[in-house]
Design a binder for these strands. Sequence first.
DNA 1: TCACGCTTTCATTAAAAACTGAAAGTAATG
DNA 2: CATTACTTTCAGTTTTTAATGAAAGCGTGA
Lengths: 173, 173
Amino acid sequence: MSKELPEWEKAREEFVVQWGSLGTQWGIPRTMAQIHALLMTAPEPMCTDDVMERLEISRGNAHTNLKDLVGWNLVRIITKKGDRKEYFEAEKDVWKIFITISKERKRREIEPAIHLLRDCAARTKDEATGPGKDFHQQMQDLDEFLSFGVKVADTVISMKHASALQWAMRLLG
Amino acid sequence: MSKELPEWEKAREEFVVQWGSLGTQWGIPRTMAQIHALLMTAPEPMCTDDVMERLEISRGNAHTNLKDLVGWNLVRIITKKGDRKEYFEAEKDVWKIFITISKERKRREIEPAIHLLRDCAARTKDEATGPGKDFHQQMQDLDEFLSFGVKVADTVISMKHASALQWAMRLLG
DNA sequence: TCACGCTTTCATTAAAAACTGAAAGTAATG
DNA sequence: CATTACTTTCAGTTTTTAATGAAAGCGTGA
């Protein structure tokens, strides 16, 4: 067996494993979620071999998922002088993580949907009656809702944490 | 080949197929997303055989996904008197769909995460210095953020569409 | 009670996604 | 320019997830 870990490292272990399972429920590859959890709780940037060893995964897997996380802007590459290795460091600020994920999801998931809805609405804009008109209306309703959501998201995304908080408190209060 | 469809039905076909692919990106089974798209644009409630035929899928598949959608409260079962079949009807009101999905995601995805974070924070509450303390702090930050998000979501969920709109307009204005 | 019409389950198969490991690529260094 | 220290790719494999279709279940009414 491996050597005894300090108490916080045991909790971290648990966090990494469980965050991985939560990830899959959420449509995120297990390994990617685990690496993210690992890096979010890393005192220092980690290199590919650190991650491989810690999670007991292959080089290819570690590499691909690290780069995907970089692609999501959730992780950045750090280089140390006199060292050819790349080190990886996760964004730890919760508000920044939120902003980043919101932006990416908007781009990857919402915008293509809006595209589709507009296309379907355009193709049926001359439908004047009955089911054809209802279909057109449904496409438009969905489009309007998502587009409005994007506007709200853009506003929130451009806010500093403090002002967003203040604004949200007003909503709750 | 099948008979000629009216123009709006062709657009609907496109919508169903594409919504299915979008669904997979989102972590939702293709068939489930397709059925949802089909029902959201159905002039009348549909029975299992209607869905099977339209999407060319097996009975088991149609059945399971219809029931899953019912489980998500996105679809309800309609019975007609003098007819033993179950018919399925999707919620079409965009705001209601949004509320429903928010509630379910909160329950299935956010709350388990909060649980995990609290557990990990509790296990390290005595860490006074260094990495252990940082870990504890990170767990708490994540917890606080998600918990706050839940509070905001609960507030929005309890709003009527009109008041939510009004409130959002104030944010944007 | 049995036959019918529909719903549900589930063992099997198919498809998709994730992971491995080894080989190829790249660039800094002596 | 050759070695070294890494990074990147990818064909093949494993694992996971989704779909099939046939059989079992269930309730109604003849």
